[in-house]
Amino acid sequence: MRNISDIIEGYLKSIIEEESRGQIEIKRSEIAEKFHCVPSQINYVINTRFTQDRGYLVESKRGGGGYIRILRVRAHTKAELIEHIIQSLEAGASESATEDIVFRLLDEEVITKREAKIILAALARTTLAIPLPARDDLRARILCAMLLTLKYEKSEK
């Protein structure tokens, strides 16, 4: 059974996809009321499921007429997306950031579910059993190598 966070995420993603501009403006309290949860649950979903690494930009305006705007950012080409991700990895990659990147690659159909599972297994904290910050640095270097392989393999097709 899916939890409330998964349900809220699915709902928000479906209305973003329905919008021709790929963005929505929501009121946190209205969404919380719709799903019978506290507004902080909506914050949690937005902060963890709609990150830049997953391909979203989030803006918020506080106050009486406040809103949260969620914008889906899509690259023009798969090679452009991969290049953007590689540039973002210069400072290292935490395990959660890596998961976000892999989910985005999966969502944008750059990789398959099987490839996603292999990448996540290879870059897991238990696999790279070395201390921080070396672990995040090594994870980023391995992920960059994988992405470069994907980039050139995709461009050959």
Rank of each mutant, 00 (worst) to 15 (best):
Val73Gln: 13
Glu30Cys: 04
Ala97Glu: 14
Glu115His: 10
Asp136Asn: 13
Gly92Ala: 02
Glu109Met: 10
Glu109Gln: 13
Gln87Val: 01
Leu89Cys: 02
Ala91Val: 12
Glu9Asp: 11
Ile46Trp: 07
Glu9Phe: 05
Ala93Arg: 00
Ala145Trp: 04
Leu150Pro: 02
Glu80Tyr: 14
Ser88Ile: 05
Tyr56Asp: 05
Lys13Leu: 14
Arg54Met: 13
Gly63Pro: 09
Arg54Asn: 07
His84Lys: 13
Lys78Phe: 00
Thr48Asn: 15
Ile86Met: 06
Arg21Ala: 14
Lys151Pro: 09
Glu95Lys: 07
Ile31Lys: 00
His84Gln: 12
Cys144Ala: 14
Phe35Cys: 03
Ile118Trp: 00
Lys27His: 03
Gly66Asp: 03
Phe35Val: 03
Val45Phe: 02
Ser96Asn: 09
Gly65Trp: 05
Arg28Lys: 07
Asp137Lys: 11
Ala116Asn: 03
Leu81Ala: 07
Leu148Cys: 09
Asp100Tyr: 05
Gln41Gly: 07
Glu83Gln: 14
Glu59Trp: 11
Ser96Asp: 13
Thr98Phe: 01
Tyr152Asn: 14
Glu153Phe: 14
Glu115Cys: 04
Thr127Gln: 10
Gly64Phe: 02
Gly65Lys: 06
Ala140Thr: 03
Gly55Ile: 08
Ile4Ala: 04
Leu123Met: 05
Glu17Gln: 14
Ile24Ala: 05
Asp137Tyr: 11
Pro133Tyr: 01
Cys144Ile: 15
Ile70Glu: 09
His76Met: 13
Ile8Gln: 00
Arg2Ser: 08
Glu109Leu: 11
Ser88His: 03
Ile31Pro: 01
Met146Arg: 11
Thr98Leu: 01
Ser88Gln: 10
Pro39Asn: 01
Glu30Tyr: 09
Ile85Trp: 04
Glu25Ala: 08
Thr127Lys: 12
Ala140Gly: 02
Thr149Trp: 10
His84Val: 12
Cys144Glu: 15
Lys27Leu: 05
Glu99Gln: 08
Gly55Trp: 12
Tyr56Val: 12
Glu108Ile: 06
Ile8Tyr: 00
Thr112His: 06
Gly22Gln: 09
Lys113Tyr: 12
Ile85Gln: 05
Ile111Asp: 04
Ser40Asn: 08
Arg54Ala: 08
Gly65Ile: 06
Glu153Arg: 15
Ile82Leu: 13
Lys113Ala: 12
Ile8Met: 00
Ala79Val: 15
Ile26Leu: 09
Ile118Phe: 00
Gly64Trp: 03
Thr149Tyr: 11
Ile86Asp: 02
Ile86Pro: 00
Glu109Lys: 15
Arg135Cys: 06
Arg72Ala: 08
Pro39Leu: 04
Leu138Asp: 02
Glu33Asp: 15
